[in-house]
Amino acid sequence: MRLKSIAAALALAGAATFAHADSFPGGPITWVVNWPAGGGQDTTSRLVAEMLSEKLGVAIAVKNYSGAGGLTGMRELASADPDGHTIGMLGASSIIQQYTTDEPVMLDELAVLSFFGPDPGALTVAGGTPYESLDDYVMAAKESPSEIINGNDPPGGASYISASILESSLGLEINKVPYSGYAPTVTALLGGEVESATVPVPQVLEHHANGDVRILGVMAGQRHFLAPDIPTFMEQGYDVVAGDFRAVVGPAGIPEDVAAILSEALVAVLSSPEFNAKANAAGYMIEPLGAAEAKMRIMQFDEQVYPVLEQAGLVTNPR
């Protein structure tokens, strides 16, 4: 994901500066995206921001603070005035970074406002491989440990963690080869450089339909809405749940009433059929949850991922 560019902003930004405090407590909102323009975090943010702006009646300027693997944006967010006028998108990588980076932003420096949705991992194999089913794959991996080459993020990235969870839940070992982002991973899978990949479903769906790759299973509690014919790991008898997620957060210390307004508005936007139609078309799973439930979901992920990181020897910042 370390793309060479860049930060961006809505043309609204200019207007935002002069906007009147119409309804939401007092003036425009800045929405922090901690990845460069064009990625999933950015696209989803702009989509939500657009509708949230209508809902609250104030301008929302989306700003990309990329760099340091997402840490720059998180720091910007955590250090902003906790008045509810700076909010942003949080992903799984920021939870992981709490334990793997120098000077991280910890979850308790942030206030969770709502859950956006999960982006479950999936296990996909290249068309040229002999693995027709998940059973084949697991059997082969057990027979010859560390032989199957899997494409994923560098250690600490979401699809690396998915692969690690796959390994630790099923007692396998695979050769986890890192690529910088989903696009190069999928390219390597298509070119046959890696045999399998643990990227989310939307990244490989098109190639699955075309017969170039096979999605063997989805690492989620339920099937992916874009691929209702592909069974989950659970259904095939393997207890593996893993993947990325998205949530909306602000700096810790936002006044309760302001946080409640934001949280309610977000849930309303995320639940609207209009938004769901757009987001689903773009491949994003939506699961609107209020602040308390969202916090719980994030804590669950936190509990799940810490032992995996510890096992992989990635923890430099122990709890």
Binding site: A9, A11, G14, A16, T17, A61, K63
Partner: peptide
Amino acid sequence: FRFILGVP
């Protein structure tokens, strides 16, 4: 930069 491009 600030107002037309929205650079913060």
